[in-house]
């Protein structure tokens, strides 16, 4: 499959394959373009441009034609998951039996991926239940102080709209 890039929120697909001697083929739409990046020099087809690129994780900040752009690569696994990158279901279940130490959210709370929604304790070990994706809490199934069994539903996120 081709890679997905976001330029200013807009989606663009492209593939990259080696073409030897430091050259690559960029596949965009039905076309193949010979490309290379040699330090501050971007080669695309017969064209050469001065370019500055700074990469931060999966984001390339690119200075080209006197303008700066932000191009983000979306990892395929995250791109196609309905939930977060883990491909998790909407309901987070208890990984082991235990009790609830704290509940930080309630139905209707908006959460961002990675946000701690609940802290549970099992086997004298505290575990944070984090939001697997951005979303809205549909239900917090257990209250602070309550105990639960392995596999019990802890928090359910409202399902995402089908794209």
């Amino acid at each position: 499959m081709r890679h997905l890039f976001l330029i200013d929120e807009a989606e663009h697909e492209a593939g990259l394959a080696p073409a030897g001697d430091g050259l690559y083929h960029l596949l965009v739409g039905g076309e193949t373009l010979a490309v290379a990046l040699d330090g501050p020099r971007l080669v695309t087809g017969g064209r050469r441009d001065a370019v500055h690129v700074a990469v931060e994780g999966n984001v390339a900040h690119i200075h080209l034609d006197g303008r700066a752009f932000r191009v983000e690569f979306r990892e395929a696994m995250a791109r196609f998951a309905k939930g977060g990158a883990e491909g998790g279901a909407d309901t987070l279940t208890a990984p082991m039996p235990g009790s609830v130490v704290a509940v930080n959210v309630e139905a209707g709370t908006s959460v961002t991926a990675g946000q701690i929604m609940m802290v549970i304790e099992s086997m004298k070990l505290e575990t944070a239940i984090k939001a697997p994706r951005d979303g809205v809490v549909a239900t917090a199934h257990v209250a602070a102080g309550k105990t639960f069994n392995k596999g019990a539903a802890l928090i359910t996120l409202a399902p995402l709209e089908e794209a």
Binding site: H3, F5, L16, Y24, L26, L33, V35, L37, T44, A60
Partner: peptide, 19 residues
Amino acid sequence: RRRLLAAAALSIRPVRDAA
């Protein structure tokens, strides 16, 4: 658009590594 995609594809590690 194409040149940006080229610069990004050639710079972002997972993309270049895949190639």
